[in-house]
Deep mutational scan, measured.
Amino acid sequence: MPSETPQAEVGPTGCPHRSGPHSAKGSLEKGSPEDKEAKEPLWIRPDAPSRCTWQLGRPASESPHHHTAPAKSPKILPDILKKIGDTPMVRINKIGKKFGLKCELLAKCEFFNAGGSVKDRISLRMIEDAERDGTLKPGDTIIEPTSGNTGIGLALAAAVRGYRCIIVMPEKMSSEKVDVLRALGAEIVRTPTNARFDSPESHVGVAWRLKNEIPNSHILDQYRNASNPLAHYDTTADEILQQCDGKLDMLVASVGTGGTITGIARKLKEKCPGCRIIGVDPEGSILAEPEELNQTEQTTYEVEGIGYDFIPTVLDRTVVDKWFKSNDEEAFTFARMLIAQEGLLCGGSAGSTVAVAVKAAQELQEGQRCVVILPDSVRNYMTKFLSDRWMLQKGFLKEEDLTEKKPWWWHLRVQELGLSAPLTVLPTITCGHTIEILREKGFDQAPVVDEAGVILGMVTLGNMLSSLLAGKVQPSDQVGKVIYKQFKQIRLTDTLGRLSHILEMDHFALVV
Rank of each mutant, 00 (worst) to 15 (best):
T5S: 11
P12F: 02
P12C: 02
R18M: 05
R18Q: 13
R18C: 06
S19P: 12
G20C: 02
G20F: 12
S23I: 15
K25T: 08
S27F: 05
G31I: 04
S32W: 11
P33E: 14
P33A: 04
E34G: 11
A38V: 14
A38T: 14
K39G: 04
L42G: 13
L42N: 02
A48Y: 10
R58W: 13
R58L: 13
P59Y: 02
E62Y: 13
E62P: 14
E62G: 12
E62I: 14
H65T: 07
H66L: 11
H67C: 09
H67L: 10
H67A: 08
S73W: 09
P74I: 07
K75F: 06
L77M: 11
L77E: 06
P78V: 06
L81H: 06
K82D: 02
V90P: 05
R91Y: 11
I92A: 02
K94S: 13
I95P: 02
K97S: 13
F99L: 07
K102V: 07
E104F: 02
E104G: 11
L105D: 02
L106W: 11
K108P: 05
K108I: 02
C109A: 15
A114F: 02
V118S: 07
R121I: 04
L124W: 13
L124H: 06
M126L: 08
D129E: 13
A130Y: 02
A130K: 02
D133F: 02
T135Y: 13
L136S: 05
P145R: 02
P145T: 07
G148P: 12
G151A: 02
G151C: 04
L154W: 02
L154I: 04
A155R: 02
A159D: 02
V160W: 02
R161L: 02
R164I: 02
I166L: 09
E171V: 11
K172S: 07
K172F: 02
M173C: 10
S174F: 04
E176Q: 08
D179C: 11
V180R: 04
G185I: 04
I188K: 02
R190T: 06
T191Q: 02
P192F: 02
P192W: 02
T193L: 09
R196V: 04
R196G: 09
R196A: 05
F197C: 02
P200T: 08
H203G: 06
A207I: 02
W208S: 02
R209N: 10
L210E: 02
L210R: 04
L210D: 04
L210I: 07
K211F: 09
K211Y: 06
N212D: 10
N212F: 09
N216G: 06
S217I: 02
H218C: 12
Q222G: 04
R224Y: 02
R224V: 02
A226N: 12
A231C: 15
Y233R: 02
D234K: 13
T235S: 11
T236A: 04
L241R: 02
C244M: 02
G246N: 07
A253W: 02
S254R: 02
S254D: 02
V255S: 04
G256H: 07
I261S: 02
I261V: 14
G263P: 05
G263H: 06
I264H: 07
A265C: 05
R266E: 02
K267Q: 12
K269P: 02
K271C: 15
C272T: 09
P273T: 05
P273V: 10
C275A: 15
R276T: 14
R276G: 05
